[in-house]
Design a protein around this nucleic acid. Structure first.
Ligand SMILES: [Mn+2]
Ligand SMILES: [Mn+2]
Ligand SMILES: [Zn+2]
Ligand SMILES: [Zn+2]
Lengths: 138, 138
DNA sequence: CAATAGTTTAGAATCGTTCAAGAGAAAAAA
DNA sequence: TTTTTTCTCTTGAACGATTCTAAACTATTG
């Protein structure tokens, strides 16, 4: 049985922000948060919306992805210098990234331990540590 | 005293590849490898070339960065989903990346230890592990 | 309901990067 | 050296992902 809770949570958070629960946002939230955690690009989500007869412009897809990210419902993952990926799993974790399939796979935070860190550059503090393990078909 | 060896090494490697030592490639190699290790973007290198009265088209900058990368003289660093960075330090190491200044800073490989790794996705093997520590001005 | 503020949309614009084709330069052959 | 071949460089167009614009639309408020 697939989690339906995350979607309810997402709706609650939608309400908690100043974002109006519009037809488009609700439909996209449903697609994004009704099942297991996932990684999407603007284009992949747009395709999926169309496949589910949800009519949304690409501009709205971008707007929504950024708004959900600001609201803490999504997190951006940087693994490709030409495309942005968004992750429904906002907890601290890392990724496998297959350069060939362009697919991301989660690595639970506990499965990677980053040891002794050098101090960050003068005047800065750490906002986040990303570990990306690039893989290729054997 | 700034290292002049890396430049000589780069020239040697240029020769070792099938890349002809053209005026443009020599000039760019000199800019890239005459001093300490550094991180450049196509645009930043283009600006630097112009500032040094090296006339090179942007297309050649891109071609050269990719050719040097294929030749193992540079390595691409992925920290930004809109721009490509190239690193003259091709040894295994990690990075601090300041989202504000868009500047990279090296972290010696030894300064970070990545612990227990989960097995890569079925049918794939690890090609590289990247640790990016994002920082922001305090 | 009317007024207001926020949202969506199509299409144009932008930006980094790549492509295409012809002119130019280096290497190999003669 | 000259000729021929191969590779390289350049300009400008093309591209793909993303953002912007301004007008139409919708949710919220009073
Ligand atoms: Mn973005
Ligand atoms: Mn590239
Ligand atoms: Zn993830
Ligand atoms: Zn580096």
């Amino acid at each position: 049985m697939v989690a339906t809770r995350p979607y309810a949570d997402a709706l609650a958070r939608l309400r908690a922000t100043k974002l109006r629960p519009t037809r488009q946002r609700l439909a996209l939230a449903k697609l994004l948060f009704s099942g297991a955690d996932r990684h999407v690009t603007a284009e992949s989500l747009h395709k999926e919306a169309r496949a589910n007869r949800v009519r949304v412009s690409l501009a709205t897809i971008y707007n929504t992805l950024h708004q959900f990210t600001r609201a803490g419902m999504l997190r951006e993952v940087i693994v490709d210098s030409t495309r942005s990926y968004f992750d429904t799993n906002t907890s601290h974790h890392h990724h496998f990234f297959c350069e060939q399939s362009q697919l991301l796979e989660d690595i639970p935070s506990g499965a990677v331990s980053v040891g002794t860190l050098p101090p960050p550059p003068r005047g800065t503090s750490i906002s986040r540590i990303d570990v990306v393990i690039r893989v290729h078909p054997r």
